[in-house]
């Protein structure tokens, strides 16, 4: 794996305004080819951090370097160019209801390239095929299930082979089998395209499947980072508590579902 740094967050203060700072003093570095997950409870600021890194929410203080350039210091045109090298999978899929799945996936190709229409459609179909949705290409988002919408949104996020994919709660609202398929799709795309994936989640099972490295946020800061195994064995306050709560949740409902 190359050690090229793609994302560097330095002394970040994240939030929507000065009165609602959710993370402060955050330093984060993400290398090419890594799958990094950001873990934390509800309201811990993990999605806010993802938006800040992904160019959607300027930090209140600090800098974000994306591909070696200060994302929020460059002009709008340059920022757009940098962001075109990334893709985003939104928590609620953010597909356009007026377009078919193929139309949704082909949209970035049509808007950002001068490729002929037949190549744009074929590219969209191929990406839909990668997430096992080619047979539903003519359907509208309202005509498919939540898991299928998520996978279509993933196909759209990767249609132009971004170098980084930001995933906000990719498996939220999905049943375990569908969630596992989405994780599989992410890993498959990582293997094929050498993607760097940054995913925010509270699904520890998903983290175990996909993550090279995990970062736990809470109490307004990064509490710990490392492999999932390391973090699960951590004695640090906040980290141990987070995994303990997750384990408690898991063991409290699993037997009920198995009987």
């Amino acid at each position: 794996m190359s050690s090229e740094l793609l994302v560097v967050g330095h002394e970040l203060r994240c939030g929507y305004d000065a009165e609602s700072v959710v993370l402060d003093g955050v330093d984060i570095r993400i290398e090419r080819g890594e799958v990094v997950t950001i873990l934390g409870g509800s309201g811990s600021g993990k999605s806010t951090l993802l938006k800040t890194l992904g160019g959607l929410l300027p930090p209140l203080a600090g800098t974000v370097e994306l591909f070696g350039e200060d994302l929020y210091a460059v002009d709008d045109a340059r920022r757009a160019e940098l962001l075109q090298r990334t893709g985003t999978l939104f928590q609620h899929d953010a597909l356009f209801g007026s377009m078919t799945l193929r139309g949704n996936v082909a949209l970035p190709v049509e808007q950002l390239t001068d490729l002929p229409d037949e190549i744009a459609d074929r590219l969209a179909d191929t990406k839909l095929d990668l997430v096992e949705l080619a047979h539903l290409a003519e359907r509208f988002p309202s005509q498919v299930s939540g898991g299928q919408r998520k996978r279509a949104a993933l196909a759209r996020a990767v249609v132009l082979d971004p170098e980084i994919v930001w995933c906000d709660e990719p498996t939220s609202g999905l049943d375990p089998i569908t969630a596992a398929r989405l994780d599989h799709s992410l890993l498959h795309l990582r293997d094929v395209f050498g993607l760097t994936i940054v995913a925010v989640t509270h699904d520890v099972e998903s983290v175990r499947t996909i993550a090279d490295r995990a970062i736990v946020v809470g109490c307004g800061a990064i509490l710990a980072e490392g492999t999932v195994t390391e973090l699960e064995q951590s004695e640090l306050a906040g980290v141990a508590e987070f995994f303990h709560r997750v384990e408690l949740e898991r063991t409290s409902w699993q037997p009920e579902h198995r009987t």
């Binding site: 037949e118 459609d121 179909d125 191929t126 990668l130 080619a134 293997d191 094929v192 395209f193």
Partner: peptide, 19 residues
């Protein structure tokens, strides 16, 4: 990686004709 990128389109279905 180049071979993998090209093979992706060998297995993918062609865009179907609209109904």
């Amino acid at each position: 990686p180049h071979r993998a990128a090209l093979e992706m389109f060998e297995s993918a279905p062609a865009t179907p004709e609209p109904p």
